[in-house]
Design a protein around this nucleic acid. Sequence first.
DNA 1: CGAACCATTGACCACCTTCAATGCGAGTGG
DNA 2: CCACTCGCATTGAAGGTGGTCAATGGTTCG
Lengths: 237, 237
Amino acid sequence: MLAHAQASPTFDTARASALRNAPAPSASSLEGHLSRAPLRSFGAKEHVFTEGDPRANLYRLESGAVCLYKVMPDGRRQVLGFAYAGDLIGLGSSAEHQFNAQATKNSELRILPWSLAQRIARTDPEFGFKLYEAAAQELAAAHDLLLTTGQRTAMESLAAFLLAMARRGRRAKDGHTIIDLPMTRSDIGDFLGLTIETVSRTFTKLRQLKIIDLAQCTQVHVLDMDALEDLAQGEAG
Amino acid sequence: MLAHAQASPTFDTARASALRNAPAPSASSLEGHLSRAPLRSFGAKEHVFTEGDPRANLYRLESGAVCLYKVMPDGRRQVLGFAYAGDLIGLGSSAEHQFNAQATKNSELRILPWSLAQRIARTDPEFGFKLYEAAAQELAAAHDLLLTTGQRTAMESLAAFLLAMARRGRRAKDGHTIIDLPMTRSDIGDFLGLTIETVSRTFTKLRQLKIIDLAQCTQVHVLDMDALEDLAQGEAG
DNA sequence: CGAACCATTGACCACCTTCAATGCGAGTGG
DNA sequence: CCACTCGCATTGAAGGTGGTCAATGGTTCG
């Protein structure tokens, strides 16, 4: 019998936390090169790149937030994740980007041309391995999201999502956690594979269950963290 | 206005094709080390590793097929992908495996301890970059699957899945493609986020629409490839 | 031959979507 | 200052897609 370890509902969209968690805090080669790379600003709603663009650069988000998504011909959208400060953007193996990256607010990114990156990778053994760790981190996040879109109900999805956001926000106040949601209901819906109406209704249900409280629609107070965790794992009715 | 490039319904589960497509056919370092790594056999239904196991080894599948999946506490299962000969298994950034890998038939895998891999990566610049490319390839597959589980209908999902399988099988006969499905309806369902009943019913509908024909339940004849492609992109009723 | 597993089909129903109306807040211009 | 608009969130009603439960048939294996 297979020992089913708990599937952790992390959605850890921290794309380069492998980097941040590096055992050696001495500036890694990737870190070193990136910190010297030129900085560019993007306005809210501006695209860093779109699907089909040549994959010319590796980016690191310095400030702001970026939404990664795919679209179908009829406009249906799947959000793949959100990037925050410190995250690498533009990892991939093909010649062209396979998804879109759009700043959700004013953002600053460091830009490292892939041509240069490949040159570095050829001489610096650590560099390629750092890239690998960042990609593997993203892969784990994608796998977590797959569990949600494929198996979880709307309630379970939103609970798992809120837990993941709580884990990166972690602003505690008078006992219970406060979560800031720097994205719209539409972003959340397209992330979880739900409509905005379902997202909104599920927020309402969570409020009625006294599990969360909504100060504004962008700020969630977690009243019962245990219940939220049970919900995310499908252990509640 | 954003130029919406066609979202390619690939599901390219070929995990290490970055490797196979390497421009230099000269044995890469990864290739070289792996070809010298010890070989181990796994019987059908045997697990290569399970979620929570220490991530001790990097594997390459030499023959057979391996199913990668996550499970929820109540038994719901999400298949993340299928690995075939040549694919790398066991990529990740955490200390423990975050999903299960189960041989679906008798399989042989080469085993390279991560401790050794990290030592190689420290000296061989190409090695880490190859790992990165393999991880990025898997990431793209996961993103494609997300589009399916998150946005596509059952019909669209199955069409996209069949197209992806056709792309890797490609056995043509008297004009139309033949697809072999080396997995059960349950595997397909858990992959696409559907139940086996829905998968079965959707196969039946595709047959009634004269888009496919089912010789056996494991062999699909594609009668109308264009219609299948339209379906996968949501461009048909 | 029986057992076990898998696939198919049917009936029913629940969850989520769709369509629609309302409310709310920010930004803009009269 | 206020009316207007626009975008976003919420809520309601109706409908459909896919899930659940159940029965049947086919295939493989012991």
